Each structure stands twice: as C-alpha cells, then as structure tokens.
Amino acid sequence: MARSEVEHDIEIQGPLLRETLINADPLLTPDDPDLQKLIPAYGDWHLHRRGYRIWTTMMGLAGIVGDSFQYDRVVAKASGLSAGGKDALREEMERQAPGFTGRVVTATSRPPKPGEVHGVDYYFYDDRDALLQAVAHGDFVEHVLQGDRAYGLPKRSFDDALAGSVPFIVTHVEMASGWPAVHDYLTQEYQGSPPREFDIFLLPEMRAQAYFNEWLPGHRPAGEVESRANRAAWEIFHAPVQAEVIVTNVMSSNRPTLKQEASDLMSMMELVLKDDVPRPTGLARLPDLGVGYIPRLRHAQDVVLDSGH
C-alpha cells in the first residue's frame, strides 16, 4: 500500500484492533495461544535462542543464512510498539560493540530534553510545520505524525551513517510506511553498495491491557497516546507477516536479558557480513547460533530450527 493508504488504514482500523486486543488481553509474545488465536501468523515464529527472546520464522532464517558472507554493511531497521524498548536495545548494542555500531539520527518537532544535542540525539525542528516543509522538499526518507508532533528520518542522516566505516547501522523507523520507504531509498537513490536490511520488530513482553491502559500512557505525552495506541494495535496485527526478526523485551528497570538480546541480534546480523569485514570481539560465530545446527547453507530445506519454545 502507498503511504497515504497505510496511514488511512491505521486511522480506520487502529481503534478497532486496539479494542480487540484489550478485550482478548493476550500476552504480547509470539508463542502466546491467545495472541495466536487472534493472529494465526504468530504460530509460524520460533525462538532463535531459548530464553533470549529473539524470534524468526523458518523462511526468515533461511533468507538470512542464504545471504551469508555477502555484504559489507548491515542496516537494522528497528521498529516496534511505542515505548517498547528500541532505544535501550540500540544503546546496549553500541555499548557492547563500540566502533562497530552506529545509528541514523532521526528528526523531531518536539523541544529538546535537558542534555539532548541537536544533530547527535535528534535533528530538532522548531515546530511540526517546519519539519513537514522539509518533507515536502524531499529531504526525508519517511515521516510520521504523532498527535501534534512530527517525527522522521532525514536523508542526510542515512548518508552520514553510511559514509562511515561501522558494519552495523541501526535506525528507528516505522514499520507501516518506513520499512518500504527505507528500502526504496537504499536501492534506488543511495549511490553506494546497498547494505543488507533487517526488518526488526520489538514487542514489550506484557499483557495487552497493561500495555494500552498503563504502560503507554505512563511513558508518552497525553496528546500522543491515542495515535500511538492505534498505530501499535495495527502493528501487532501486521508484524508477523512483515518482520524478519521479532524481539520480545522484558520491560523492567532490571532488564536482565537485554545484554543477551543485543549480543544475539548482532550475532545474527553478523552472519551476512563478508569474511573480510572486521567483527566486534565477543560475538557468537558459526555454527553456534542457538537454532540447532546451521552450517553455511543456501537452501531453506537444509535449515534446522530448534523446535523448542
């Protein structure tokens, strides 16, 4: 669907899907029976590593293995429910692999928070209209409206990130229209060798009622909660057919699995990098990928998934 059609679909379907999720109150993790009853496509997802909340499908994993050792660069297109832990996961990846992990700086029309720096944390625009004017000039890969604020991904940010030497580049981008927009930019406008894209979706591991009624309102401005909740509901229903990797985050101050989640995710992405690309130290290497046994294969029928949930 075109961007306008996607946004219209979210506007119309989002409230209905949110009500459905709240009434059923499933646990937001792919193996939950109540979630699979609502959205059967989640039944195709399996834990990539037991206990560390990285999920793939058989075909998704086969695609990753099929791309082994073919790319100089990886772009992780991290999407997910609002307040679902995207920043925490990216920051942990940067902490574990300094000098190997970079990010694409996004833009916002909200005011800077104390300590935030223009061009480092975000590109800050004076107001929503100023950001939308830049969008109209063709300066953005994608953008999204949340209440009275606008957020987006400037093309210059992508160009700056790809001009560097780090093999892992992480960007926050909306699944609905952002994933295809980034793909189009990297394959049609970007002048360098296209990187391997990973479509990664993050789910907070909690009940739907807890997320929509407590967690989201407690972590986002009141004026944005309605639009973010509708988008989140739409994303939950569409993620299992659009994502390549799903990460379920335990949302607590302790976050005991965050370190392993970040390490496992980088190990998975590292698989597609060419042999001569420098690797961060400490990442798991083949064949220890935690999915049974995956040698250097090229065919889906040869991939053996760990059948345990």
Rank of each mutant, 00 (worst) to 15 (best):
A222P: 00
F237L: 07
P204I: 00
P278N: 14
R18C: 05
L305A: 10
D25R: 03
G308E: 15
T101P: 01
R73P: 04
T20I: 06
Q36I: 12
A210Q: 11
R50M: 09
R3G: 06
R3K: 15
G192W: 07
R103L: 08
D306E: 14
L258M: 07
R255C: 01
V277N: 12
D148H: 10
G308A: 14
T29Q: 07
D160V: 14
P33N: 03
P280F: 02
T101R: 07
V75K: 02
Y125G: 11
D32S: 15
G84C: 06
F198H: 06
R149Y: 07
D302P: 02
V6A: 14
D9N: 07
R285W: 04
M206V: 02
P287R: 10
V272R: 13
R110G: 00
K155N: 11
G147K: 08
V182F: 10
A134E: 15
L47P: 04
R110A: 11
I169Y: 03
R156P: 08
Y211I: 01
L265E: 02
R3F: 03
A262V: 09
A233F: 02
N213Q: 13
E11I: 07
L283G: 08
A78M: 14
T171D: 03
G152H: 06
G290C: 12
V117G: 05
G119C: 10
A210I: 04
T20P: 00
A134K: 03
D32N: 15
E197P: 00
P280N: 08
A262E: 00
G147F: 07
A161H: 01
V303S: 04
I294D: 02
A161G: 09
E226W: 01
V245R: 05
